[in-house]
Design a protein around this nucleic acid. Structure first.
Lengths: 334, 334
DNA sequence: AGCTAGTATGACAGCGATGTCAGAACTTCC
DNA sequence: GGAAGTTCTGACATCGCTGTCATACTAGCT
């Protein structure tokens, strides 16, 4: 049988409460008692039952990560980052895929909390914008941290990068290369980052004195197919753009495919830029110029904030980085 | 406060035990009592505490998914598949990344079980081969199902595809196109699937009467960089292969990149085939001919087997599929 | 010596469910 | 009509911990 705290207390000749004290690193345990208990724990290979701890105490030693994102790379990095911080804390991670647009989301989140009594929740974009779910968390007083929220900033702690600035810089890079007709593919409508990136693009154009032309902007959905479709429409224009900036790497991959299909020579006939720097970016041909979004670090920082347990909302902003690869170059003269 | 079973029993005017019976769909509850309890449950929006259930009962309503795989796409599909089946069953999923090669793995798995008392475990390759971890599970009598195990088949239920046959078919496809010098990039040494795919490649060569030449086989590690390195060495041969079959898509992407870098015209100068049919495959240029591995379905089937709870090991084999895209073609004559 | 504050430990109740067992009410069958 | 099921329900112990509270000891001070 699995050893229980009783077995440990018997072996160490102390009360179960004292064993509990040692396990939870409480004050007021003598050095000598502590080592005796620790020896017994090791000897029996004892591990406290999470269920019993949850039931008796105020903590469950579990947190949940709620996400809904169609990019596997992104999710993978989010999971990895959160996970890394959880390990350090000795906390388990419950993975909770969801549908941010679902009307049942709040209900599901409520159920998750009530059943598992998680100590906290991390929400990744775009679940960060599901107000009904946030309310459910608040009603129960569950601390939560959001990764890259697009709105309701005062509501909780969060971590994010500067999407506007990053998109501005990337657009600036294209302008500096000599491009004047720059296509832009907007991201998924649910994600606030989509608007921010579009804004950054416009800001850079403005500053360079290039007129914003709506025909160079196409709606995408953050997936490959929508990138292809948008690229086709942009390249069909009488005066096609000489560069296309897609709001994420998956859509940029779609642009590359369309360009290859049309027999364009890259990057001279068309420069292409992406956003995120997922693994995909360096595996494409030509390797993609993109914005390195510090996804893993954002996730780690989010977990960090959760465990810090600040009373008032804290916002942490992580640095992005332009990654210049071979998919962007000066346009052909003329 | 969160309602408890007591609140429900008070409202429905029955004992807590009877509420418990209804919750667990036990026999011997009158129709009338059942509806009264169900109404109270709905009214109070009651959800039983997982912790209390785990402590008191024999089930925890949680299972764990243990994985260690360096392909985000693969993991994502595995998670999605297992998750889908868990939802149907009303069971939570604990995500447990790990290092299959670590000497501490068994220890970690043991800790996971002892602390969380999960009802079962799903292991994805290559953790499927970590015998010490399997022993830990067996000692505790925890049911587990493995996804694509490479050995120890009698040990547990499992789901898998036919790697040998799939690699054989893909090699056959290249031979049928007219290729005679076919390079092969082996997968990660930890994965048994690597050996199986190599074996399938050799079997197809044998059958076609093509002599197996070790110089056309290079070791890879399932990642992009190792695919690049292997491709470079293959293409540097005095008589380079006219086709390269990589054991997964990531490595095939590396081959494509090397080919582009060398200015080869694809697929005429070089045919490239991959394995897995991850999202990447259709996002590359040219779109990759590959083997569709039914990863999501395998994961779903694994969870299915776990919940079925057969006494004796059951093995389920799912069908693969050759996906012919534009990266393979007949070699240049001569 | 007597008091206070700080340190160290244990007894015991209780968290919210399920398992066991006992008993009541109702059928069925000889 | 009584024995033998079958169906339905509840009392109560219990799972393995932590929270609360009581108590004992030590040191430092008046």
């Amino acid at each position: 049988m699995r050893p229980t705290i009783k077995d440990v207390s018997a072996m160490a000749q102390v009360s179960t409460k004292t064993v509990s004290r040692v396990l939870n690193k409480e004050r007021y345990v003598s050095e000598e008692t502590r080592t005796r208990v620790e020896r017994a724990v090791a000897e029996l290979n004892f591990r406290p039952s999470a269920a019993a701890r949850t039931l008796a105490g105020k903590r469950s030693y579990q947190i949940a990560l709620i996400y809904d994102n169609h990019s596997p790379h992104y999710i993978h990095q989010i999971q990895t980052g959160v996970w890394a911080r959880c390990i350090e804390e000795g906390v388990r991670l419950l993975a909770q895929p969801s549908d941010a647009a679902s009307t049942q989301l709040a209900e599901e989140v409520g159920g998750l909390i009530d059943q598992t009594q998680v100590d906290g929740v991390i929400l990744s974009s775009p679940v960060t914008e599901a107000v009904a779910a946030l309310e459910e968390l608040e009603r129960r007083g569950i601390p939560y941290v959001r990764i890259s929220p697009g709105s309701e900033h005062g509501r909780s702690s969060s971590v994010s990068m500067d999407d506007v600035q990053a998109a501005d810089e990337m657009t600036g890079h294209l302008i500096a290369l000599g491009h004047r007709r720059i296509g832009f593919i907007v991201g998924h409508t649910n994600h606030t980052a989509s608007d921010l990136r579009l804004f950054g693009y416009r800001r850079a154009l403005d500053r360079a004195g290039i007129e914003f032309e709506p025909k160079y902007v196409r709606q995408g959905q953050f997936d490959f197919a929508s990138g292809e479709a948008a690229a086709d429409r942009l390249l069909d224009l009488p005066q096609p753009p000489t560069a296309i900036f897609a709001s994420n790497d998956d859509m940029a991959a779609g642009v590359l495919t369309v360009a290859h299909r049309r027999g364009l020579s890259l990057p001279h006939d068309l420069s292409v830029a992406g956003f995120d720097d997922t693994a995909l970016a360096s595996q494409l041909w030509p390797p993609l110029t993109t914005v390195r979004q510090p996804t893993r670090d954002l996730a780690y920082a989010a977990a960090d904030l959760l465990f810090e347990g600040q009373e008032d909302p804290v916002h942490r902003r992580l640095a992005h980085e332009l990654v210049l690869r071979a998919s962007t170059a000066a346009p052909r003269p003329g």
